[in-house]
């Protein structure tokens, strides 16, 4: 993966745009994501079934990875089994 790339979930229709991070494998619903959707969906791991929300940004603890959810799904995100968290938005006043 690299910034600008779209990662597709193997367990459902979820899609994520890579904002930050390179060369890592991110799992959705327990299954690794790639830029290609598998022909048949993989089974979702029930420990990673919290779901993702469109427009939310997901980051790892170290801040090396940031993914924007562009299509929501039932799986939740992790790297090597360590869950990613929703990035807290710091709201700016609308300037245009």
């Amino acid at each position: 993966m690299k910034p600008g790339m779209k990662l597709k979930s193997a367990v459902d229709d979820a899609e994520f745009m890579v904002i930050k991070g390179s060369g890592l494998v991110v799992e959705c619903g327990g299954a690794p994501m790639s830029d290609q959707k598998p022909a048949a969906p993989a089974a979702i791991d029930s420990s990673f079934a919290g779901g993702t929300q469109i427009g939310k940004r997901y980051v790892d603890e170290a801040g090396t990875v940031e993914l924007l959810c562009v299509k929501a799904g039932k799986g939740s995100l992790a790297i090597g089994g360590v869950a990613l968290n929703v990035k807290e938005a710091k709201p700016l006043p609308s300037s245009d």
Binding site: G55, A89, P91, S94
Partner: peptide, 23 residues
């Protein structure tokens, strides 16, 4: 595309406006 998307993603929270809002 990368410039404009970076600006929007960096300054605007998706779907943050309530339904009555209009600009």
């Amino acid at each position: 595309h990368a410039n404009l998307l970076s600006y929007i993603l960096g300054t605007v929270e998706f779907a943050s406006a309530s339904p009555e809002e209009g600009a």
